[in-house]
Computed example of a mutant assay.
Amino acid sequence: MNPAASVPKWLMDPPDLGAGSSLPAHTRIEQWLRQVIDRGDLVPGDRLPGEENLAGSLGVSRMTLRQALASLESLGIVVRKPGRVGGTFVSEPKIECDLTGLAGFTEQMRQANVRPGARLISATTLPATRQVADALSVERGSPIHEIVRVRTANRQPVALERACFPAEPFPDLLSYGLTGSIYRLLARHYGKRPHMATENLEPVIPNPDEAAWLGVDITTPLLLIERTAFTSAGLAVEYARDLWRSDRVRISLRTGLTSSPRLKPGDSRR
C-alpha cells in the first residue's frame, strides 16, 4: 500500500511553521485547522489524527499541538473526548437561539432550520413552593402543574425544561399532549398566549440526573435560563428553569437604544 494513500489530503498541505512569522506555531496551526474545517475538508463528526501522529506530521511537539487544539475547543470548533474511543472531533455547529422575542423552543428551532422534538420526563400537579408561588403570584401551596421535558434538535438533546403553570387558569393542562409547543397549547385551548417575559441567565453545573438526561458529563457547564412569562393582561402563566447545553446552543439577544432617562438636578452627562 502506498503510505501517502492513508494520509488525509488536507494534511498534505500543512501550515508554514518557519521562523519568518511573528505568530507562534500553535496560533498558525489553529488558523490552518480553522481553514481546513471552513472549506469542508473536515466536517462535523470527523475525527482528527491522534495527537502524536498529527504533531509528528507537523513537526511540532505535542504541547504545541495541544495549545492549538485547546484554543479551537474553547471556540467550540472541536471537542476532545477522553477514553479508548475518544480523540479530537470536529464539533457540530451551534444552534442560534434568539431570546429577543418570546418564541418558544419549537419556534426557535424552526427559525434555526432544525427539527424540534420533546421527550416527556414527568408531568405532575403539586403544591407551589415559595419560589414558584412568588414567580406566579399565587399562594404558597397552591396547585401548580410541573412539566419536565428534554428538548431535542434533530433528535439530539439540547435543553432540559422544567416549567410550572398555575393550575387554576389551566385546570386540565396535563390531559393534553405535551410533546409539542405548550405556548401554542395555552393560546389555542385557553386563550392565554404568553406575551412577554423576564429572564435571567447564569452558568451552572448539572446534577447526575440532569447530566444523564442531556447526555453530558457532570462537569459540563450548562446555561440556566430562569423565565417568568406573562400574558398581555399581566397574568403570570409560566415559571421555568431551562438548562441548555452550551456546547450545542448559542444564545443571542438584540438590543437597541431607548429614550434617555430624565436627569435629576445635580446629575451630569458623561
Score class of each variant (00 low, 15 high):
residue 180 G to L: 05
residue 242 D to A: 14
residue 242 D to C: 15
residue 171 P to M: 07
residue 192 K to V: 01
residue 129 T to E: 10
residue 27 T to E: 15
residue 120 L to E: 09
residue 242 D to R: 02
residue 90 V to S: 09
residue 118 A to K: 04
residue 16 D to M: 06
residue 170 F to C: 01
residue 185 L to P: 01
residue 156 Q to G: 00
residue 14 P to F: 14
residue 249 V to H: 12
residue 207 N to D: 08
residue 267 D to S: 04
residue 115 R to C: 05
residue 242 D to N: 13
residue 132 V to P: 02
residue 35 Q to N: 11
residue 254 R to W: 04
residue 164 C to D: 02
residue 177 G to V: 04
residue 78 V to S: 12
residue 15 P to H: 10
residue 75 L to F: 07
residue 118 A to M: 04
residue 268 S to R: 12
residue 131 Q to R: 12
residue 234 G to P: 06
residue 64 T to K: 09
residue 247 D to S: 13
residue 172 D to P: 03
residue 106 T to H: 07
residue 191 G to W: 11
residue 52 E to V: 15
residue 40 G to L: 11
residue 43 V to T: 14
residue 170 F to V: 02
residue 183 Y to W: 11
residue 175 S to K: 14
residue 58 L to T: 06
residue 2 N to C: 10
residue 57 S to M: 10
residue 129 T to W: 07
residue 76 G to P: 12
residue 192 K to N: 03
residue 142 S to K: 01
residue 117 G to L: 04
residue 127 P to A: 09
residue 121 I to M: 03
residue 59 G to N: 15
residue 2 N to P: 08
residue 198 T to G: 11
residue 219 T to C: 08
residue 78 V to R: 05
residue 222 L to H: 04
residue 82 P to E: 14
residue 117 G to S: 04
residue 69 L to R: 02
residue 179 T to V: 12
residue 107 E to G: 03
residue 53 N to G: 03
residue 64 T to E: 12
residue 120 L to D: 08
residue 72 L to P: 00
residue 24 P to V: 13
